[in-house]
Design a binder for these strands. Structure first.
Lengths: 210, 210, 210, 210
DNA sequence: GGGTAACCGAGACGGTACGTCTAGTCTTTAA
DNA sequence: TTAAAGACTAGACGTACCGTCTCGGTTACCC
């Protein structure tokens, strides 16, 4: 909960003393927070998520374990904040004239983001989320939803414009667009290659057309 | 390796005395092997994969830990052999007259297999495999490949018969058929419901048609 | 190191609040420490040292294994602190008028201490120390040295008083006094009997006289 | 039991076919026996006895574990046969004219034998014997007794000749001669140095004199 | 020369303990 | 009055050995 909040709002830290809501007691150490996120990021570079322990993060960050447990409910929450908040994973999309173009661009962007090291980490986060229902929700909220929402909006728009069948099931269409990407990510990590990126988005969007 | 072999070929045991190649030393105990697989299966019923320890399996099976480590390289390998070799997970498909029907039936069968408890276990195996490259390969070999191969065969057949476009990319079509199913399995476990099963297979196959 | 220190100096515990240097974090639990030493002592009553496992001590003391490993480097260190710190093993000697009497009394006390159950345990500690150089040093520091030092002092005093030869080699004399006692302890445990105690100390001291 | 016999009598092997007592069945392999003893000797060079496992000896000797367990009841028995039977540890003493000289020579020989690497091993055997009563008996039989017996004989002889007091307690005298040597061996391995060897035997024997 | 008996190697077996690591929790001092 | 530090119980990890067992095979003898 604290972590979820942290992902979308401002975290109270001790160097933001202009913060109007002054709670009593010792303020949260911003230095510790950064050290923890940094340590997490660095360990994610060369270690599968499953083999990263809170203990190891705490040691590397020079921080007590409790400090981590107080602010993040799971390993997954910590990793999501450390990883997904970094630049390059923001889902800023150019405005495109047509709905089908918008869908294509979204898919291309996603495939590029899920390539290589980053893709491995996302796959590991999805894996971690299998055993932690709250983490699954958090994953959706902090990564999936914005992308899904974007697809939904343009699918709806395309439907209105007559680009897609009037009886198109939008939710299923979303899964048809995203499914193959994540399927490849999770069962064959090398498969999100340039060739796939060059052909898949266009073809996937076309099959939806009227 | 021993485990992989076990999944596809005959395991050398002391009750299969027709086995011509007798190695020196005490032969592997078939009784222990069965006890281990049984214990694993039973624990999978009510415990998430991550919370099943080799130690607990050994204790429940009345077996030394070493016996497990000797024959299975990972928890994932053990679980796959225990779980996927179950009767209900065999991929026996009825012969169908047409290629599109065959694809539809395969998808329906898969969705039914991945529903409920079993689906959760498969999702956990896929998750486990993310951190264990060998396990990923084993997953493909022992579960994915036969299903993929079946799809590939019928896609090829349908292409020859003119049912699908002559320039259909078969590998991509496979991912388009399977992707949404596993995507739902891993990001929204309740989504493989009856409604999905009633509409998805048909629609997915239809979008491939010429 | 922590253990060695514990044997000769004050252990920091939470009931010794006069301790000026308070470090942050939860202080060492004195309750656990006592439980561990108690469990060790009780097990030593009926089990040879070699067959006492850290695991069993932890279980009996209701304590995590780590807690033991955190504070004692070896089984030998633990056992020495548990056993040698017992009341009956303190080397409190009466003041005696003459040097030869002092030596005699020290030897008699030692023989009585090494008799029966206690002797077996000391023999086992010496045995354990053969494979663990640090333990050998600790044994000397926590048991041998005070006794040796006492002998050395009185031998020196007796030499000054003309009771012993002026050219008496004190270090060798110490070994001549102690050697037979430990030799019997280690090669024939029943030999430290009343008869030995009645005759040996007097005779051994007499042979040193001028 | 087999091992004890082996130390003092002829071991039945397949190359001693003149042996009158021919039992049925395959005879003991002399090659394996030698390989085991060799391996043990080599490992004793650089490893403390406690850290030598039967398993490792068997592997190094290219022999089944059962073969070792069949012929030696303990690790201690194996080690004693391997180590004490080697040349240089035989207690062959020159004939000396006088009893006190004989005692001196025996002590010097012993000190030289217990120096360095060999001394460490004997100390380890004594240590091992503390937890294994049978091993203690075997140690006495195969190493101590011959030396003790030799001392006893010459002490008795010296007593008869008037060299020692008529009321000398021979058993105690033996312990007084040997004790300091083993005491140094077990509590301060560096102490059996040249200086000790040069002075101790003479002085120790002299203190017994009338 | 065909049993029969005791040995051999190999190696799997049920166990126990190792010493380390991690999970979460609890109890202090520091800010 | 909250944050942070660090000791706590609990228990799994994967490895090493224990001593036993079960094989196929070997090497003697005895009839």
């Amino acid at each position: 909960m604290a972590a979820e909040a942290a992902l979308i709002s401002v975290v109270p830290t001790n160097n933001q003393n202009h913060n109007p809501e002054k709670r009593p007691g010792r303020p949260r150490s911003d230095k510790s927070r950064e050290a923890i996120l940094d340590a997490t990021r660095k360990m994610l570079m060369h270690t599968p998520l499953r083999d990263i322990s809170i203990e190891a993060v705490a040691k590397r960050a020079g921080v007590g374990k409790t400090t981590i447990y107080r602010w993040w409910p799971h390993k997954a929450a910590l990793v999501m904040e450390a990883f997904l908040a970094q630049p390059g994973l923001q889902n800023i999309l150019p405005t495109t004239p047509t709905a089908d173009d918008a869908l294509k661009v979204q898919l291309e962007k996603l495939i590029r983001q899920l390539r290589g090291q980053n893709g491995r980490i996302v796959a590991n986060i999805i894996a971690e989320a299998q055993a932690e229902p709250e983490a699954l929700a958090l994953l959706n909220k902090s990564f999936m939803n914005e992308r899904v929402e974007n697809l939904r909006r343009h699918l709806s728009q395309g439907k209105d414009e007559g680009l897609f069948h009037a009886y198109l099931d939008i939710e299923m269409a979303i899964d048809q667009l995203l499914g193959p990407v994540f399927y490849r990510l999770l069962t064959n990590n090398d498969a999100l290659d340039e060739r796939f990126n060059a052909h898949y988005p266009e073809q996937a969007v076309n099959t939806l057309k009227a």
